[in-house]
Each structure stands twice: as C-alpha cells, then as structure tokens.
C-alpha cells in the first residue's frame, strides 16, 4: 500500500524486450519510491535500463510485470486513452533536445497542454505569463522557438512541463545540449521552482552539474537499482 506522501512508486517493475528474437531484460524488478517535492537524479551508463525505467514510470511504455502507482493510480493497468490522459494531467516532460513544437510560439507551446486539458483561455493566458515570468522569458512570449537560444528553449520546455502543475516532472538529460554555465543556471532555476512549488522532479543524467544539485541520486545498472545516495 502506498504512503500518501509518495508521488510515484514502482513495485517489482520488469520490462523485457525482444531484440532480434533474443529477449533482453532491460528492467529486472525495480522497487522505487519518490516522495512529494523530491529533486532526484537517476544516473547510469548507456544500456543500463535508465531510459526504459523512466518510460515505464511516465506511462510511455507498459511493463512486462510489476506495478507503477502514481498519486494512488495504478498506471500499469491503464488503457491507451487513460494513459494519454494520465500523462497529460500528471506528468510534465522535459526532453534532451528541448522538443518544443516549432510551429507554435513560446506562449502557444507553454499553453498547449492546458489547451488539451480544456482550461479556459483567460486562465491559460494568466498561467502562461506567470510561468514565463518565473523562467524569465515573459518578453519572448510571441517568438518562435527557432528564434531562441538553446538555454532559452530549454527554459520554455521547463515552463511547458510545469505550467499544468503536474505531480511529477520527468527530465531526460535536460542539460545534454547546453554549455556548463547555461546548464548550471537552468538547474538553479529548476531547483528554485521545485522549492517554491513543491513539485517533484526526476532527472536522468550523466551531467555532474545535475548530480551535484540533486538532493538524491539513484544509480541504475543492468536493469537494477543498486545504490541510492542519501538526501543532501
């Protein structure tokens, strides 16, 4: 049974892929809990199962065995449509390559998920402008992503991930395409937002800048979690 402070919890999570007819156990029974307000990094070498594990928690992939429970909902048993709604309402995504919609302006990118949620135009606008102010991009609201720097685009991605107030923000190597200074600034900003809003953040990273700022670092190797650093 999950603790109500837990945002996400996995129990005996397993995922086996077929690769050229050969079964590959990418995740081999992970029990993991993330409590509200955490700022946690998952590290591990390539092929360790890090990506698969995050995909399972985000509801982007279905487990072969085990359960994922987010805010009391068992997502491993959800239908495709339920999963889509679950991601929309409970998870914020920040991708490595920013992945903003190139045909939408900064404001439109940030409001997109709220549009899917059916939030009223006035409220959407207010929340967009508020979050853009927090990521210091209020003067760039009408620009297209292509007219922004990499750091600015990633800040828009952070705003997009947070504006709908999800239970969990999953960031996949968010600093991979940024220089050290920009990475440091971005992480400081995210940490500040985490502290201000109490939103839970889970990173996958190789970047020491992220690891240094994370309150908890979890290591994954060969599909198993084997080390968890204490909270800083």
């Amino acid at each position: 049974m999950s603790n109500n402070k837990n945002v996400i919890e996995t129990r005996g999570l397993k995922k086996t892929y077929e690769d050229g007819g050969v079964p590959v156990e990418a995740v081999r029974g992970i029990d993991f809990t993330l409590t509200k307000g955490e700022f946690t990094a998952i590290i591990g070498p390539s092929g360790s199962g890090k990506t698969t594990f995050l995909n399972l928690m985000a509801g982007l992939d279905s487990p072969t065995d085990g359960e994922v429970e987010l805010s009391g909902n068992l997502i491993s048993k959800m239908s495709g449509k339920e999963l889509s709604n679950y991601r929309r309402d409970h998870i914020g995504f920040i991708f490595q390559a920013y992945n903003l919609f190139p045909v939408l302006t900064v404001e439109e990118n940030v409001e997109y998920i709220m549009l899917l949620q059916g939030i009223h135009k006035k409220e959407r606008h207010e929340r967009v402008m508020q979050i853009l102010e927090q990521v210091e991009l209020e003067n760039f609201a009408h620009r297209l992503p292509s007219k922004l720097s990499g750091g600015q685009q990633q800040r828009v991605a952070v705003a997009r991930a947070m504006v709908s107030r999800p239970a969990l923000v999953i960031a996949d190597e968010p600093t991979a395409n940024l220089d050290s200074k920009t990475s440091g600034d971005l992480l400081d900003m995210m940490k500040k937002l985490n502290e201000e809003t109490g939103m839970t953040f889970l990173f996958s990273t190789h970047d020491e800048i992220v690891m240094k700022r994370a309150r908890k670092v979890v290591t994954i190797r060969d599909g198993l979690l084997f080390k968890s650093e204490e909270e800083k």
Binding site: L60, K81, S84, R87, R88, F93, N99, I113, L116
Partner: peptide
C-alpha cells in the same frame, strides 16, 4: 516522427 512522439507523450489524443 519525434515531434508526434512528443505530442503523444504530453497527452495529445489519437483523434487530435
């Protein structure tokens, strides 16, 4: 393809 993946990831429905 990647863009559609992102759209679906953030909760855009199949119909949309």
């Amino acid at each position: 393809m990647y863009e559609f993946g992102v759209m679906k990831a953030v909760g855009t429905s199949k119909l949309n």
